[in-house]
Design a protein around this nucleic acid. Sequence first.
DNA 1: CGTTGCGTTGAGTACCATCAACTGGGGTGG
DNA 2: CCACCCCAGTTGATGGTACTCAACGCAACG
Lengths: 261, 261
Amino acid sequence: MDQLSDDQDLDSSLRDERGGKSPETDDWPCQTCRVRDAGLCGSLLRGAGVKSAGQFGRLHQEFHKSLPRRNIYDAGRATEGVFVICSGWAFRFVQLPDGRRQTLSILLPGDVVSGVALFARRLSYSVQALTKVAYCRFNRGELLNSLTTRPEVLESLSNICLAENEQADDAITDLGRRSASERIGRFILRLMDRLAARGMVKDQSFEFPLRQQHIADAVGLTTVHVSRVIGAFRQSGLVEIGGGRLTIGDLAELRRIADAK
Amino acid sequence: MDQLSDDQDLDSSLRDERGGKSPETDDWPCQTCRVRDAGLCGSLLRGAGVKSAGQFGRLHQEFHKSLPRRNIYDAGRATEGVFVICSGWAFRFVQLPDGRRQTLSILLPGDVVSGVALFARRLSYSVQALTKVAYCRFNRGELLNSLTTRPEVLESLSNICLAENEQADDAITDLGRRSASERIGRFILRLMDRLAARGMVKDQSFEFPLRQQHIADAVGLTTVHVSRVIGAFRQSGLVEIGGGRLTIGDLAELRRIADAK
DNA sequence: CGTTGCGTTGAGTACCATCAACTGGGGTGG
DNA sequence: CCACCCCAGTTGATGGTACTCAACGCAACG
């Protein structure tokens, strides 16, 4: 039913963590992917025909899995391509020398870790799995080629970069000019919107694998303060968090809090 | 000598503010541009040959000027292309309904207002001139075409997007996890680096047309607090600001403050 | 049943915001 | 020339938001 619970096949193959798969084998993971038709994968696979490997054949993919709390990528390491989250949650973050930590974005199934990673040999942030995560790497060279030969790929990647920039601008505004409750409210609402676009929200309720530490790192607060704000939210009946789920109790009021002071 | 003072021609032509110029006239402004060979303009004009208009002829450009404190672009308006700052300073900012304001980035000569603006019909932020500004608009359609036909344009625009994303990530980290003095210190140092790359820094001193209000909007503080922090900087001999210039007094110490707590 | 991780709560504090008054420079007009 | 105003910046007083340190409850787990 939901993304995080029915991962039998993820479980069963977690032994071969980080094991690559040939893109042309019969058990091609994308065949059963829930988010295959959206975002970058959509453009890459649509033009190619899902089963054939013609002139616009499938790009080479390398499939990986990660357990929770493991780093999928460490800042500064060389990358050989672009990562896409197939299932599970992850996040991009920066760790300062003195331990302070800032999450740059939460990555949901179907998200490209970063569109511009296509042009960068190494990134300045790390990526960590939040839940069990299955992800896939597209080869940089191939992707760069298809950029010039396949207009829909260029368009898709452009849209991804556009969205990433807008999200970054939003984050800057939130962190620079909004109060704690505004930040947390907006954080929750944005997450819900993104999950809703994936059909992962039902009755204003969705899976929520984040610890308060993750929220704190994302909105630039401490866990203690996040606890207080969320406690206040809960007492006002705005949200309910528990059992790995988040349920919105009073959407209108949450929107009001998130929109202004 | 410096960018902002020798603007006789800017002055003299400020009458025809917002007046477009045909790209093929003899008084083509780029002929005298100081930053012509850098960034996007560099790639666009290099491949084309500066004087000729062959197969890879010049793209259509529309030149504009703006007085200080005028909005070059208002959030939400339809855009017909990509803006490049030719001379002067500007900034991208978001204005919240209740008046709070966050600056997203400072734009220096040679900067593209936003690389991804190429793919967006309207932007969610506004752009305001800080000094007298000359800027130029490249046509969206033409630029999109040259993206697929001219590899160096694609590469240049990729690098711009990459840099924009990295700057945004830096800003998020600063606003989320750094103290006031760290933010201001880093703000100054980053500005100096970017100006140095344009040859606009001499003896650790550079033109600095920003009011404390602008700094406050950029680093997410109030003007009052910016005044205190900068006052402390000045008293420690770290920086001296005055007469529209900023001079670094103790670069090592400023770096130390900016790098950690 | 101790341990560990996560969340909550309290007390005290630091940082930064807010409000307000005041300074000094630059322009303008009497 | 001076009065006046406006703008940018400074400074002080005060207060609130969010941080730090610490203790504790609770559930999961070995």
